[in-house]
Design a protein around this nucleic acid. Structure first.
Lengths: 352, 352
DNA sequence: GTGAAAGCGCTAACAT
DNA sequence: ATGTTAGCGCTTTCAC
């Protein structure tokens, strides 16, 4: 089965390739009658233009490359899905560059490889190898526009900022408001920017409540449920007074809940637990998990819109328009894992 | 910043474009001395050949299109990740076609669009719209090789088959062996092939044990934890004797656990629960979830290898080699949700 | 071993 | 409104 080309359609319709090309690209300079005749033939034969040839000739691929970490984490996965939908809506395809290992050994070569597929723009949706970006020589700046999702990466602009610090602070304030006095925290790996921000939110939450934070209240995980389980084990031994935990994502919170279940420590009476992300399963943990819901749809919509605007400017040889940064606020979702029974004699420090 | 081309390198090296092309493609017909000189220049300037131009000229893109459902389900996501790694290892890029809605309205147009990007092959990794494939007129068969992952889709060959029926049967047998007499099942949507297979496994498991299955023991979910919660609610009312549940995936099992937690029905004493998939979180449910682990790595490795072999044959204008089908066995992972403390004395009939 | 010419399937710039 | 002429950057004959 030979593939159809522009020429086949042109021959069949008795016009030149150029006219067919105009029909395909909705160029107005085609007679009404010619257009319908050509279009009919295209439909009848099921012709689809070769995108590779089209890209080479037009010098644009209608493709957006996305650099993202493994999608087994909820955050990256939600972002990839949303970006895919938003990009489609804007007429672009996504070209995912999934980073499987922690870091590519040679980021510069990695980016050159990415560019060799001629994407029209790049979305930087990975936060744990941001520092590496500085290894890019400043003069080798990309020949195409690039934006980051919600992450501050040196040298890459971002159209949105998520108030991670405030959101985490809000969660911690809630734990304290429910009567907790000794709030521990389980962080993600420190090379992820979001880890550092959520930790900072915890710190500020404590300070705000007049409870000085201390290092022995902090344990580190790697985002997985298992690491949450192990981290909680460590926390219980190094900080026995702990009566509430803020886990930096929901998976780790799940590991925490499991350990408490095993040890027979009641949640929330003996221990309040909060997570971060509001994965779809969080409502069905036992008990349901108090957590922070992120505005992924907004993040991705704004990011794609911004990038598309930059691409348009790039194609029109205009200077890039300034990027205005939207500040987005996550939402605290309160569920059973932190709601102490009102009837109980639990201590309340303050009320919001 | 202008992009480098073959010509730039050729000029710099004082050779013709073809020689540079030969160096890039590791063509042996280049003098040792010339090769190193050219290669040095390429490295120094950081030249990467334009993949679009290369694809157009060579008539191959080293790209594999993957048709897959939304990756918010664990199965599709695990498959996408594995395929990505395996494809990379084989020197191919993945071009994911994520189906966001349930079904594309016009599958034929969808496939033509996919083909217009000139992938060298297609992996059909979606099982819920398989029936639609039959709408393809038989003569419009694809001009490139296609294989399915583990799903039997009419018209598409698959290199692996997973023993879903036996695995489900094994899980049910285990529940019965733990003292359950009234095993309910929560199925996925019936348009997914795996739903039907797992249901069949449940049926055979009961028959095998001399327990005739009946329709009122069956409730349907949509893979989500919420649907598992709701399905379990229905199951408890329509089949009050139920003392064990086989959920067709782990998320739904989580919903089940949550409902039982709310109602104070003890797991596993009053109710055994088993899931399917062994998502990384399953071990950290409370209690840990008994489930079926699928051999995703093997599935994807074999699938990619098979497709690459077909692509090679296609490029060499040889007939496709016959596909030998591997049968893979999932593994039963037993955890707390089904392990009754003592066999015998505790067989509670109902609590709700 | 190397180079010149042709062409992949399309779009862009200039015809008419 | 339509056709003609050049490429896009590369690989592929086929010379030498």
């Amino acid at each position: 089965m030979k593939r159809l080309t522009l020429e086949d359609i042109a021959r069949e319709a008795g016009v030149s390739k150029q006219t067919v090309s105009r029909v395909i690209n909705h160029n107005p300079d085609v007679a009404r009658e010619t257009r319908t005749r050509v279009q009919d033939i295209i439909n009848r034969l099921g012709y689809q233009p070769n995108q590779i040839a089209r890209s080479l000739s037009a010098k644009r691929t209608r493709t957006i490359a996305v650099v993202i970490s493994k999608i087994d984490q909820y955050g990256p996965r939600a972002i990839l899905l949303e970006l895919d939908q938003q990009a489609h809506a804007a007429g672009y395809r996504l070209l995912p560059y999934i980073i499987h290992e922690t870091e590519p050994s040679d980021l510069d070569a990695y980016l050159r490889n990415l560019l060799s597929h001629q994407p029209d723009g790049v979305i930087w949706a990975i936060s744990n190898i941001g520092d590496l970006l500085e290894s890019l020589s400043p003069d080798s700046s990309l020949p195409i526009p690039i934006v980051a999702t919600d992450i501050n990466v040196s040298g890459i602009q971002s159209a949105v900022a998520v108030a991670h610090v405030q959101a985490s602070q809000m969660a911690v304030a809630h734990l304290i408001e429910q009567g907790s006095q000794h709030v521990g925290v389980i962080t993600g790996p420190p090379n992820w920017a979001v880890s550092r921000l959520r930790l900072e939110g915890w710190r500020q939450g404590l300070i705000e409540a007049g409870l000085p934070p201390d290092d022995h209240q902090i344990v580190q995980g790697d985002w997985s449920a298992q690491s949450g389980y192990e981290a909680m084990t460590r926390l219980l031994s190094q900080y026995p007074q702990v009566d509430a935990v803020f886990a930096s994502n929901d998976q780790m919170a799940l590991g925490v809940l499991h350990l408490l279940y095993e040890r027979g420590i009641h949640v929330p009476d003996a221990m309040c637990v909060a997570g971060y992300d509001d994965i779809p399963e969080a409502a069905y943990f036992s008990p349901g998990l108090t957590t922070i819901r992120q505005p992924y749809t907004d993040i991705c919509r704004i990011t794609v819109q911004t990038l598309v605007r930059l691409i348009d400017a790039h194609n029109a040889d205009e200077p890039y328009p300034p990027i205005e940064k939207s500040l987005l606020y996550p939402k605290l979702i309160v569920r059973g894992s932190s709601l102490r029974k009102k009837a109980g004699e639990t201590i309340k420090l303050e009320t919001a």
